[in-house]
Design a protein around this nucleic acid. Sequence first.
RNA 1: GGCUAGGUAGCUCAGCUGGUUAGAGCACAUGACUCAUAAUCAUGGGGUCGGCGGUUCAAGUCCGCCCCUAGCCA
Length: 572
Amino acid sequence: MARILITSAIPYINGIKHLGNLVGSQLPADLYARYCRARGHEVMFICATDEHGTPAELAAAKAGMPVEHYCAEMHAVQSNLAAGFRLSFDHFGRSSSGRNHRLTQHFARALGENGFIEEVAERQFFSVADNRFLPDRYIEGTCPNCGYERARGDQCENCTKQLDPTDLINPRSAISGSTDLEVRETRHLYLKQKSLKGEIAAWIDSKTDWPILTTSIARKWLNDGEGLQDRGITRDLSWGVPVQFPGAPWTGMEGKVFYVWFDAPIEYIAATAEWADDSEQPDAAWERWWRTDKGAHDVRYVQFMGKDNVPFHTLSFPATIMGSREPWKLVDYIKSFNYLNYDGGQFSTSQGRGVFMDQALSILPADYWRWWLLSHAPENADSEFTWENFQVSVNKDLADVLGNFVSRITKFCRSKYGEEVPAGGQTGERAAALITELEGRLRAYEAHMEAMEVRKAATELRAIWVAGNEYLQSAAPWTVFKEDPERAAAMVRLGLNLIRLYAIVSEPFIPDASAKMLRAMRCDDRSWPGAVAEALSALKPGHGFETPDLLFAKIADEEREDWQKRFAGIRT
RNA sequence: GGCUAGGUAGCUCAGCUGGUUAGAGCACAUGACUCAUAAUCAUGGGGUCGGCGGUUCAAGUCCGCCCCUAGCCA
């Protein structure tokens, strides 16, 4: 038994996430967490909402409520959706928590004491009407290069030229449209990542087992151009973690907060502390996951994220931890994902294109989505969601192969022997061959799950389901029954036990169906199958069961066409 | 323009450090079966592995150039 700490990249508070976001971190993280628990490991699975920053403030203003209320409300929404998808977080925290405030300040202070923070004076636009400094992309104006009138302060979308906000002609606030802007000097804290570059590079080099997608992105940022740069960790905003320290205020930083990218990953740690607080446990309970001097030396820490998040997790967050010179747990393995595209284009939160988590659950149960998304996870390359593919996969894999297997064996048993595991008879060579095959496939499945090879694991699982149908087809208990009901009984007994086996090994992918199968078999023994022959004799003769309802309903062509139409447009 | 990844059967994808007639699922065709959600199982057709050149006894797998796609960056 090992101890495994798992974190999923934390979704931004602003709005409901789409299926591409889901499959890029939370869902595969959940798959892995469920698998590790099923194998008897001690698991801590953490996620949270990323709540600070200008977009949250603006979204709150648009919704006409204080930002704290907006975030609380959206956290509840995201939390419910996570539960709807059966994401089994031990804690779904909030980066705005008191715990994160204290930890973020703690890290900043430690970094400062170790000489990894410096103050830099910058000139930035201040909007008098909005009474706030404006981040570059919230300033609009005319592009000096091409004359485009709605160029943003960081870049002109028309001619793609990189800009400095002070380059813009007739700059105005993107928030209020006000042109009453002043350039003011403001001081900010920078994290001196350059000083830590050698340490980080050596650490990345030591990770020879990481996916290429992960290390190539890290190396690119480390070495391209002028290499890893120092980065500002503060902003002139009111919503965030104040740049202040209990008992030792940071002069000159009054009214400023930490930049989201700095406090967000620290929330992984803080959320674990929130978990301890919620369950009224002492600090030692969460520290044994995060402090190598307090019990975390034997923890394996795995992070899941989309490729856009890799730089923060391979460089910035490690810089924060290394620079603290404190014994915090660094990540051991990063599993990163490419993008999921939608019907010939990209999923887009800003344009509302694609299927969003709430919409998905409103048309089909979680297991359908979990199965499709995980068995098509964008591991090696970007992959694509199409309704046709979704329909075919769900109908074939879930309804025809697995669902129908459960249906055919339970109904056959009910009609010939009643709703209990029949006694008598012996299985033959076909059963022995099945057991041999399952033995091999199950071990392969375990290997893929341990390596977090999601698609390969799904393929193997499906083959395990298919093996049951192959066996029934060749053993043909319905024919044998006519001459030798005892021998047929042994086949049926094996088939019923396969349902239990399938329920257990399929649980990480399709937890609801798994629970339904176990309930139908009136079984609460979920122990992972070691030797297959033994696992397939768990349900003894005389053990009662219930013939379950449809495990998976098929998606009809009309439904698919209807959904295709409904989600083609733009979500408002 | 640079970087990264990728271009393999109609579709979605496997193919590790080069080595027998290039694989899987779906789709398609044929057959078997009738317990089952008209489900299942078997068999089969189908690919000059983006293009050109090179290294090698041998290349989808290595090298060079070119074309195309996606993402990131300038």
